[in-house]
Simulated assay, not measured.
Amino acid sequence: MLETVQLMDDSDRATAHEELRRDIALRERRPEGPPYTGQCHNCDAPLPPPMRWCDPDCRTDWSARQ
Protein backbone atom coordinates (compact mmCIF):
# COMPACT_ATOMS: atom_id res chain seq x y z
CA MET A 1 0.00 0.00 0.00
CA LEU A 2 1.14 3.50 -0.75
CA GLU A 3 0.81 6.14 1.90
CA THR A 4 -0.66 9.42 0.83
CA VAL A 5 1.62 12.34 1.55
CA GLN A 6 -0.20 15.61 1.92
CA LEU A 7 1.79 18.53 0.62
CA MET A 8 1.03 22.05 1.69
CA ASP A 9 0.54 24.57 -1.05
CA ASP A 10 0.96 28.33 -0.69
CA SER A 11 -2.64 28.77 0.42
CA ASP A 12 -2.30 26.13 3.15
CA ARG A 13 0.92 27.72 4.44
CA ALA A 14 -0.67 31.18 4.41
CA THR A 15 -3.67 29.90 6.35
CA ALA A 16 -1.47 28.16 8.92
CA HIS A 17 0.64 31.31 9.30
CA GLU A 18 -2.46 33.49 9.74
CA GLU A 19 -3.87 31.14 12.40
CA LEU A 20 -0.56 31.14 14.27
CA ARG A 21 -0.31 34.96 14.24
CA ARG A 22 -3.95 35.28 15.39
CA ASP A 23 -3.35 32.83 18.27
CA ILE A 24 -0.25 34.76 19.35
CA ALA A 25 -2.09 38.10 19.14
CA LEU A 26 -4.96 36.77 21.26
CA ARG A 27 -2.55 35.54 23.93
CA GLU A 28 -0.63 38.82 24.01
CA ARG A 29 -3.51 41.29 23.86
CA ARG A 30 -3.76 43.86 26.59
CA PRO A 31 -6.70 43.88 28.96
CA GLU A 32 -9.49 46.16 27.85
CA GLY A 33 -9.64 47.99 31.16
CA PRO A 34 -12.55 48.82 33.40
CA PRO A 35 -16.08 49.06 32.01
CA TYR A 36 -17.93 52.32 31.42
CA THR A 37 -19.71 53.43 34.60
CA GLY A 38 -20.81 56.98 33.79
CA GLN A 39 -18.11 58.39 36.06
CA CYS A 40 -14.37 58.92 35.77
CA HIS A 41 -12.64 55.93 37.38
CA ASN A 42 -10.16 58.32 38.96
CA CYS A 43 -12.03 61.42 40.16
CA ASP A 44 -15.71 60.35 39.86
CA ALA A 45 -16.60 63.22 37.47
CA PRO A 46 -19.71 62.43 35.37
CA LEU A 47 -18.88 61.26 31.84
CA PRO A 48 -20.79 60.53 28.61
CA PRO A 49 -20.50 57.04 27.08
CA PRO A 50 -18.09 55.44 26.36
CA MET A 51 -15.55 57.58 28.27
CA ARG A 52 -13.95 56.01 31.35
CA TRP A 53 -11.65 58.88 32.38
CA CYS A 54 -12.16 62.62 32.06
CA ASP A 55 -8.64 63.29 30.73
CA PRO A 56 -5.26 61.61 30.17
CA ASP A 57 -4.00 62.69 33.59
CA CYS A 58 -6.85 60.87 35.35
CA ARG A 59 -6.21 57.77 33.23
CA THR A 60 -2.49 57.90 34.12
CA ASP A 61 -3.22 58.36 37.82
CA TRP A 62 -5.70 55.46 37.80
CA SER A 63 -3.26 53.22 35.89
CA ALA A 64 -0.45 54.00 38.35
CA ARG A 65 -2.61 52.87 41.28
CA GLN A 66 -3.57 49.61 39.59
Rank of each mutant, 00 (worst) to 15 (best):
D44M: 07
R13G: 01
T4E: 11
Q39S: 04
I24G: 01
P46A: 01
M1I: 04
V5W: 14
D12F: 01
T15A: 13
D61L: 15
G38Y: 02
M1G: 14
G33N: 02
D55W: 04
R27L: 12
C40H: 03
E32A: 10
E3A: 09
E3T: 10
A14R: 11
C43E: 03
L26R: 14
Q39T: 04
P56Q: 03
C40V: 00
S63C: 15
V5C: 12
A64I: 15
D23K: 10
W53Q: 06
A25R: 07
P46H: 00
R29N: 08
E32V: 15
H41A: 02
V5R: 12
E28V: 11
P35A: 00
Q39M: 09
Q66D: 02
T37R: 05
N42M: 15
C43F: 01
D44W: 11
M8A: 14
D10L: 08
R59K: 10
T15S: 10
E19P: 11
A25N: 08
M8C: 08
E18H: 15
L47P: 03
C40W: 00
D9L: 04
D12E: 05
P50K: 02
E3Y: 12
R29I: 06
D61A: 15
P31H: 06
S11H: 09
I24M: 04
P46S: 01
H17D: 14
P49K: 13
E18N: 15
C40K: 01
E18C: 13
E28F: 09
